[in-house]
Structures are given as C-alpha cells and as structure tokens.
Nucleic acid binder design. Structure first.
Lengths: 238, 238
DNA sequence: CGGTACGTTGAGTCATATCAACCATAGTGG
DNA sequence: CCACTATGGTTGATATGACTCAACGTACCG
C-alpha cells in the first residue's frame, strides 16, 4: 500500500513545484523523504488528527484544502488556519514535543504525505539551511497569530468578516467569474471570524445589499474588493 | 561601556540560573555570547523596540518585566505576552527575517542583554540541540497563541479577565500576603483581555464584591483561586 | 418519504462599549 | 507654596452590536 501505489507524487518534483519547505533539502535527503513517506488520500470531512493526541509525524499537503482548528467551549470550533498545496501541518506538536493543540479536517478532498517525526528532526541536525527555513516558517506563523489576536480583540465582527473574505481571496484566489475558489459553510466562516453563524449570514446579506459580494449558496462572488478593504479597516503595511 | 561595566552578569551563570535557552550552548559558545552581548538597563516606560522596525538583534532578560504588544486601531495596545527573567524577545523577527510585528515596553525596571542577530543564527548552524530548543520555544509559543485566539474569540470578557488573573498568578506569583507580584494599570489589564478600561474596573469590583480579590490601588490580592478558575471556564488539560 | 444538515429570518435580550463627569495623586513651574 | 496639568481610577447613563432562541425553508440522500 505504501509507495507501490500508482500516482504517488515524487518528493523532488513536488517540493520544487509547490515550493514546500523541503525544497531546501539535498537530493539524498529528498530520497529519504520519498522512501519514508506514506501517501494518503482523504475526502471532505475526514479527520487527519485530533487535539490532545500525540502525533507520530506530520503531513505535507499535495493537493486539497484542510482546516486546522481548536475546539473551544461547548465544542465550538475556532479555525486557526487553512493548509493547502505545499503546506505542512502538525509540525508544531512534533517540534515542541507536545500533544496536538489543534485538530485537522478536510475541507476539499486532498492527497497528502504523512512523514514520521524523526525525519523532520534529523534534517534539522544535518541541514542548517532547512533548519533555518523551518524556524522562519514557525516564526512567521507566530507573527500571523499575533495579528489575529489583535484583530479579534479590537475589530468588530463586520470588519473581521470583510477582512477574512479578502484573506481567502489572497490565499485561494478567484476563478474567472470572481468566485472564491474555496467554499465554506456559513458555520465555518463564523468559526474563522469568531462569531455566531447567524451573524455571518446577516452580515453577508448586508454585503450583498451593498453590492460588495454576490451569493450563490456556498459560492461567494467578490464584486468590490476595494469596498471590502475599506470595511475591514486594514492597516497599511510597509 | 560594554562589558567593562560593573555587575554585568556572566552568561554561563545567568543561563544556568534562569534556565534560558542558552543553557544548551557549549562553554565556547557561551564565551562568544559574553563577548558580544551589550548590557543595558531600562526604567518603567522605556521602549526596547517598536513595531515596524527592522531589529539588529534580540534581547535576553536578566531581571524586570517587559510587555510585548501590538498597536491596533486608534493606537490601542493589544498585549501579546510578558517577558521576564530568562526569556528572550524579538527573536521572532530575527528568525523570520521580518520587521518587528510587536513593540516592547518596560513594565518593571529591568536589566537586559542585547545580542546581535548573527549570533542567534550562527548557533543554529553549529549546535543542533540548541536549534531544536529554539524551535521548541517558537512552536510552544505558537501553541499558546492558538489558545489565546480561541479564548478571545469564544469567551466573555468576564471569563477572560478571571483567566488572565490566574495566568498572572502562575507566571509571576504571589507575595506572602497573596498579592500579585506584577502590578499593572487597569488599562494594561484591559489591553491583555481585549476590552475597555471601564469594563475591567467594573468587573474587578464585582470580583471584589464576590470576595474573589481585594484591591489596593494597583496591587491585587488573590483571595479565591478556585472561584476564579470556576469563572474562567478553564478546560481541563491532560 | 422521512431524515439530516445547512441556510435564513425575526424577535428579544444582554454584555460590553461609549461618552461624560468627577476624584485622587503626583509632578511641574512660577 | 499654590495653581496647573497630566495620568490613572471610578461611576453612571445610554446606546448598540452581537448572541440566543425559535421557527421555517431548502436541498440532498438513502
């Protein structure tokens, strides 16, 4: 079942194409990856790992979309981030040597490689460039988390919803008709913003009235990016 | 002015006493630290670095307390964390190679060492144990940030205030009369919780009425830890 | 055809923000 | 020494954003 299966992507090709963290590895190291990885396919709704468990490895996303979330009070999800092609997830718990502080569930069917913890750690010891890149990744995410904290603490739900729509545009893009390429339930949107599902629905329909978006079920068409930026109160960055 | 000054702490002693990240360095590496560090003293209100700037190094706290915060809309501070003896700050921007995403200001007079970026990076290349520990630190903070996001998004201000009081107890301790050792203005408390100053004042005085705390100006005496835990709705951890 | 999950809308409530006034304290300068 | 100012703390009144609860519509599925 392992790498004998058809269509298992090769790590060297994948790393250079997706620009994953593994592009910094040597040919031999890539070969090790290829040998040790376990290729898996998941469908929407499948769970990759769950909060509170110790994980024996991490995931590299080949295709598809995964939501990474924490379960708060009353089981309400708080979506922390999304992972897509080229991203790695669960590396946090591997490196901090803690149990998983999040769960991961499939949003759009995906193909991923599962890699044992040791390989992540051993490369750190043998390949400083890669170690630094990994560090950079973790520290970058830390910076993003800090921004999210400030946003949730200080912005209104309306501002945050507009901001998140723009964030989704930036991360997943629009198709040729300006529809967001990622499709989420209203509840999932609420769980990113940190609000109630009903509030998202009401605000989205306000945005629709104001001709900022168009709604077709789960598909959201972005009509006025500038308008959303204005609402979202994005601070200008250097 | 550098290390010729009196009372400059020696890194080897400091590292082992404070349990800082540098305890994983070799004797020679510690010696390098000692040689390259710049010892500085700051008073309450002093700013160590500011958001948006590129920083040429990072800080290791020898004594005192520093608040690390982001400036949001209308200049309102969102306090991200506190740093005290043994902690390092600003390493995030050094490692991610980004400008500072936070500012740092002194809460309680402090003595710190400033270390040039290169030294942090060069040790990563030469000392894998240290690299891993640094990675662990960053990943641990990432996990904490994720929890904070979920908390702010899902808990009420009342719950969060109780939680933060407990967090301050845990991190800074109580004196022999159960007074919190860290002393913050009401506004600073509000900027951790992510609320208005007036709300903190009102809630604190409710807590006082409920015999959970006692207030003497900026000094807060913790009377009923269990009670605060109950209010804070802390999830049980493994 | 019933079941389940998702989406929508309305009504009512409450927590929290906002605005404003006032007090206490400490530092400043004439 | 006193007026002056700035900063922080407190309280009250008021406004409102956002949540909750409840009902109902829709779509898909076995």
């Amino acid at each position: 079942m392992k790498n004998t299966e058809i269509n298992v992507p090769l790590c060297d090709k994948c790393a250079s194409e997706t620009g994953s963290i593994f592009r910094h590895l040597s040919a031999e190291e890539i070969e090790m990856l290829n040998y040790q990885k376990e290729y898996r396919q998941y469908k929407r709704g499948d769970v990759l790992y769950q909060e509170g468990n110790r994980i024996s490895g991490f995931f590299c996303i080949h295709s598809g979309i995964i939501k990474v979330y924490k379960t708060g009070l009353d089981g309400k999800e708080q979506i922390i981030k999304f992972a897509k092609t080229g991203d790695i997830i669960a590396y946090r718990s591997v490196l901090s040597n803690e149990v998983a502080c999040t769960s991961a569930k499939v949003i759009a069917d995906c193909k991923v490689c599962f890699l044992p913890s040791e390989i992540l750690v051993s490369f750190i010891k043998t390949n400083p460039t890669y170690a630094l890149e990994l560090m950079r990744l973790a520290c970058h995410e830390l910076g993003e988390a800090n921004s999210i904290i400030t946003d949730i603490a200080q912005k209104t739900v309306r501002e945050r919803l507009a901001e998140i729509l723009l964030f989704l545009v930036h991360d997943f893009g629009l198709d040729d008709q300006n529809y967001l390429k990622i499709s989420l339930t209203r509840e999932e949107l609420a769980n990113i913003v940190g609000t109630a599902t009903e509030s998202v629905i009401r605000l989205l329909s306000e945005f629709k009235t104001d001709r900022l978006v168009e709604l077709n079920g789960r598909k959201i068409r972005i009509l006025d990016k500038k308008g959303l930026e204005k609402i979202s109160n994005i601070l200008l960055k250097a």
